[in-house]
Amino acid sequence: MNPRIREAGLLLTIVALMLLLAWRTTGFFSAANLTDLFLANMPVMMIAVGMMMVILTGEIDISVGSIFAISSVVMGKCASTGVPIWLSGLIACAVGVLLGALNGRLIAYVRIPSIVATLATMVALRDGLRWYTQGSWIQGLPAGFQWFGMSQSGFTGLCVVAVVLITGLTALGLRNLRMGRAIVATGSNRMAACAAGIDARRVVFGVFAVTGGLAGLSAVLNSVRFNQIPSNSGLGLELKVIAAVAVGGAAITGGSATMTGTVLGVILLSCIGSALTFLGINAYWEKAIQGGIILIAVAADTLKLQRRDHAKTLPA
């Protein structure tokens, strides 16, 4: 029941990894590397915020990778046909919101189980995009496209601000806004939420739309790091995001997830890959070690077992 234990376990794993890196490698903690690491994992972090809310309500969204790809392509198509870049960005975000809202509609109002609905949209959107682009990349982007025409460091700053704002505001909102509490309440007990006058359907619809929007936004920020846009980006993104959120301690049955846990989960999973390269470990073993570390990070949960009886019946 207590998410702090998972967070402590995660933190411990991360610290252990960091110590190992500090001891065995040079350069991992250089500003340049941290910046690169941050930028590469920015989409995962942003979408994880949305995914955490989706999981909080007891649902799941596996279509984020496809939405990410579509938004990237939309962004590129718009920009390459002369639409101002900021407007293309907005359009791409809007497309993200729209696709998220489609998911939300199917799940909240048509009442299709979220795993089926988003599985369907994941496959359909991804293959639809493939059909449309026939795999070709988008090129011929205008000069001011890369980094929104800013300097590289200026753009990085912008991204940092965006990520901090999104995670921070969401964390605060989940704790202190009526809306945020409604999300938690919906996931905790859907029937009780309805009885308490919370419009659970709107809540579910909302979190899917927001998640779509975040996928769109991260696609925009990610695509302007380059000067051409591949049409198959974001493959497997959903799994990375869900893994991060789940490792961060979110219960898939809903009602329990923390932002701290999610951020730690994203940090752990996004560091592993590059850490292994820095440690000089052969790439063939990368997946095995990654899996092992996930298992170790959740092992702290076994402590929970010891306490559960206690919490259920003893007054605090």
């Binding site: 869900i242 893994a243 990654q290 092992g292």
Partner: peptide
């Protein structure tokens, strides 16, 4: 999810 990665990795 962990063993998904672990087994493939091995």
């Amino acid at each position: 999810l962990g063993t998904y990665s672990l087994y493939r990795g091995i």
